[in-house]
Design a protein around this nucleic acid. Structure first.
Lengths: 214, 214
DNA sequence: GCTAAGATATTGTTCAACAATCCTCAAGAG
DNA sequence: CTCTTGAGGATTGTTGAACAATATCTTAGC
């Protein structure tokens, strides 16, 4: 058993949350879930702590844990951090190891291939990999895990997106542009492009959130 | 019940770790510590989780928890993240709210006052507040908590510093310089200064770590 | 309709027992 | 002598239960 029981339970819950089986705002009852998953309350609470640490769920004292509801303010905040981390990656691109740079190009190609096959869900995944690869150029393990956590949080918002195609398609070309700028060593222009890119994406998400909340 | 037993136990352990009673690398045995502190293993494990979250200790599956050992690679990594976050703050300084900018100036002044009183421990604290204030200019709650965790990790390294004065004194003037550049709106120069600043600090810490490990 | 007291359900905390895993160390093969 | 192998002991992982504290729901009274 490579992973502890609590970790496996956390994995299960994470999958359910990201898959929409447990929509934002749902309370995770200790007794019901424990019976369902066949683990003790104690272990379940341990799993909760892992998810709390990933901020996929929130804990309210004496009330229990609930699937995180992403507010517009959260989206704004997350994009500020993303800007900081991905910018750091772009700026370090010149000194980045070969495999790290390759990962960027690969994510772009995979996104385009998925778009050709009309698999918009995969296009979204490739887009996340692209941005993770950008941040990874900084060569910092802590930045990598931070990006993973941020993108996991954002997935909570993506889940409410009505049309994945409308959201992801426009960014395919921009991803390629950005990758090309990095390849050409035009780091300043890449950075500028990244900044407006993230601003546009944030605005788009916030617009959709406002729409669907009505 | 204001503080739970687990929180009190965590406080005790935190004091012992920071006081040097539990040096880095020490295993925190559940049974021995539980007997020593008069709490059950389960409660002790709850306390461990709090310390793990502060990254003061690390947990290895089926092996237990150990007082965190900061490797040179960790210091390098932490400084990469700091550079990303503090740079983001400096770049957002122009749009930052008044109280955020004031916090930067205040931390500089407090550091100088502490230096005048030869209180080098307080100089170190003020320095941390200065850098936290820099990152806070970005106006992101997530960046704030990330900085807090990074600085808590770094404290483990500071603890091994033989002469706090030698380490902190040179940076007093540079803090003031940086704050002045921000006040003058010279954000590009501030950013450049910050980059070399962090490089120098990292180099200094790594040198001391190499010395003391021999 | 509103308030307050009580009942019920849920979470918070602690404990002790059992299961699973890792580490040590000695015995044996090569 | 070195390496593998496998018991045995020590330590952590997990569980279920009991009790305490808190929140929510119900009901009686005004």
């Amino acid at each position: 058993m490579a992973r502890s029981t609590a970790q496996r339970v956390a994995d299960t819950l994470r999958t359910r949350i990201e898959g929409g089986g447990l929509p934002p705002g749902t309370q995770l009852s200790e007794e019901a879930l424990g019976r369902d998953l066949g683990v003790s309350r104690n272990t379940l609470r341990e799993a909760f702590r892992l998810l709390i640490h990933e901020s996929l769920v929130v804990h309210v004292l004496n009330r229990g844990v609930f699937v995180r509801v992403l507010e517009p303010a959260d989206v704004t905040d997350i994009y500020r951090v993303r800007a900081a981390l991905e910018t750091a990656g772009v700026r370090a691109a010149a000194d980045a190891a070969r495999p790290l740079r390759d990962a960027v190009a690969r994510a772009v190609a995979e996104g385009e291939r998925a778009a050709a096959g009309e698999d918009w869900r995969e296009v979204g995944s490739a887009d996340l990999r692209f941005h993770r690869a950008l941040a990874a150029l900084a060569g910092s393990a802590r930045i990598d895990t931070a990006m993973d956590r941020l993108l996991a949080e954002l997935r909570l918002a993506f889940h409410a997106m009505p049309s994945p195609r409308r959201f992801h398609e426009p960014f395919l070309a921009r991803n390629r542009t950005l990758a090309a700028l990095l390849d050409d060593g035009a780091y300043d222009r890449a950075e500028a492009e990244l900044t407006t890119y993230l601003d546009d994406a944030r605005t788009l998400i916030l617009d959709v959130m406002r729409e669907t909340s009505r």
